[in-house]
């Protein structure tokens, strides 16, 4: 069977039992295999936790990557300022 070049796999791990809670880890893996070449890249990151309390209540706790969010926000700011600069300079040159 031919392996697809790009796969997204949602995985569930073995549950942890701590302080009366059952914690099931969830992860998402992005797998890229180069067509025609041998090898590949795997990016695996935590998605969240399925927590079951002792009273049976279940909830999903997401795991956010705050560092990456801040980096992306800064990148967004740079792109926005760059766009505004280009727009402002083109308007300036258009009026002069």
């Amino acid at each position: 069977m031919k392996t697809p070049y790009f796969q997204v796999k949602n995985r569930t791990g073995e549950p942890y039992y701590a302080s009366g809670h059952k914690i099931v880890p969830l992860s998402k893996a992005y797998i890229l295999q180069f067509p025609g070449l041998h090898g590949g890249i795997v990016w695996n990151r935590p998605v969240g936790l399925a927590v079951t309390a002792s009273d049976g209540q279940e909830k999903i706790l997401p795991v956010h990557d705050k560092t990456r969010r801040i980096q992306l926000a800064l990148l967004g700011m740079v792109l926005a300022v760059g766009l505004l600069t280009v727009l402002a300079s083109s308007r300036k040159s258009g009026t002069s």
Partner: peptide, 26 residues
């Protein structure tokens, strides 16, 4: 790509258990 690569071994200190989470790129 396995989930165990992302979640570390739990560490128990007193009545608290800590599980580290990391992202892995290979």
């Amino acid at each position: 790509a396995h989930v165990n690569a992302v979640y570390g071994e739990p560490v128990t200190q007193g009545d608290q258990t800590i599980i580290p989470c990391a992202e892995v790129l290979a």
